[in-house]
Design a binder for these strands. Structure first.
Lengths: 219, 219
DNA sequence: AGCGCACATGAGAGGACTCTCATGGCCGTG
DNA sequence: CACGGCCATGAGAGTCCTCTCATGTGCGCT
């Protein structure tokens, strides 16, 4: 449905984004150098570009500049290194629509992409619902059977992944990369612990264990 | 420039919003009952409505429904009581564009209003700059003279008010209501303390004291 | 110059949050 | 039924954040 171009040369990050997008029903294409990125972006086959700044052959800034010179109006989200504010500012002034500082959680990128693809006057998606469970994406609060529950930032991010994939089994690895980012210790049992926190707040039965696989939101 | 309708019967809150909007260059109009709200909203004289749900004569839901029935496409932001998730959901499904749970900080409302008034394809304002000081509205980070500095949520909100009003003297009261909300103890010296924190992180001279008046961002 | 008020500052209480670690329990298989 | 692995759980360390309070300092006015 929505075709997204990923211009990123670090394999690990490119694959991280690619997998995430596929899981959300997008059909991403990955290229790993600037020249290819520009060509694809101008082809008209894509609806949005995720553009790394540090690309070989032609850096992201140049790609962006040429793209805009050629009147390509496609939305561009740039990926910048943490702390390089000047790059970020330059990118936005150079015509980028948004940016993500590395390292990032996949879900943050997803939110940015949604924002840019969203059609006019569609009320911004601010509430997620599944049965009697509601998540308010802005106030970081949930409500279950009418009760209002405060969630911490982490708890909320985790709950959001479940709500966006109701009934689907999510592995610890998936949850870890969605909620904790691609840089987190894969040995940790944080996911278990936070699932417990959520169960305590949302109700034990709300999240089911699928032995050997992961967890799943009850539907 | 942008005409905003405030439909709110609690005087204190209406005035809180009104003052804030005026300070930001808007020209708000206040009405305190639902019938008047509907009339004004349909008049075509306004660009956005801030609509309280609990209005006398005709409640917010009804106003909203009638407005949409009459094909009024004006953006509507509803104000809901804290914890009333069902009201919020109903409001959004009833055609509201966004919502604010009470009590809220003025700046949060402002951000919502900006979002709704923003014109197509204008890159979302995500960075504020003043000289060598930059605020990244998304990552909650600042950068001064190239250095990157992490700010806490409160520090950041305070810094944002200064950055949005460079050179202007801001009273403790203004800062309190912007950053802490209209419900906060006006006797507290939190503002002083947080100004200190900011000075420590951003540089002493960056925020000037105007004796008897308040504080000001150095330009 | 001296006074009074406004502002600056240090210290710390209290709480929330995130994550680790160790242990205990249970499921499913052989 | 016994075992091994997977999962659940409790406890707690370390950190950060927010705000209050008491006291120090200095500005500006008379």
């Amino acid at each position: 449905m929505n075709r997204i171009l990923i211009a990123e040369d670090e394999r690990r990050i490119a694959s991280f984004i690619e997998k995430g997008l596929k899981a959300h029903g997008f059909t991403p294409t990955v290229v790993d150098d600037g020249a290819a990125a520009l060509g694809h972006a101008l082809s008209g086959d894509f609806d949005l570009v995720v553009l790394d700044i540090g690309l070989p052959r032609m850096d992201g800034f140049t790609v962006l500049r040429r793209l805009r010179e050629a009147k390509g109006a496609i939305p561009v989200i740039i990926l910048t290194a943490r702390g390089s504010v000047s790059d970020t500012v330059a990118g936005l002034e150079g015509g980028a629509d948004d940016y993500m500082p590395k390292p990032f959680r996949f879900d943050e990128l997803m939110a940015r992409i949604r924002l840019r693809l969203r059609t006019e006057r569609s009320p911004e998606m601010t509430m997620l619902q599944q049965g009697t469970l509601t998540l308010d994406l802005r106030t970081r609060r949930a409500s279950v059977e009418g009760r209002t529950v405060d969630l911490s930032a982490r708890e909320f991010a985790l709950a959001e992944v479940f709500l966006r994939n109701p009934g689907q089994v999510l592995s610890r690895g998936q949850l870890l990369s969605h909620v904790w980012g691609y840089d987190f210790d894969p040995e940790s049992n944080v996911v278990d612990v936070y699932v417990r926190y959520l169960r305590k707040k949302l109700g034990q039965a709300r999240i089911e264990t699928v032995r050997g696989m992961g967890y799943r939101l009850a539907t």
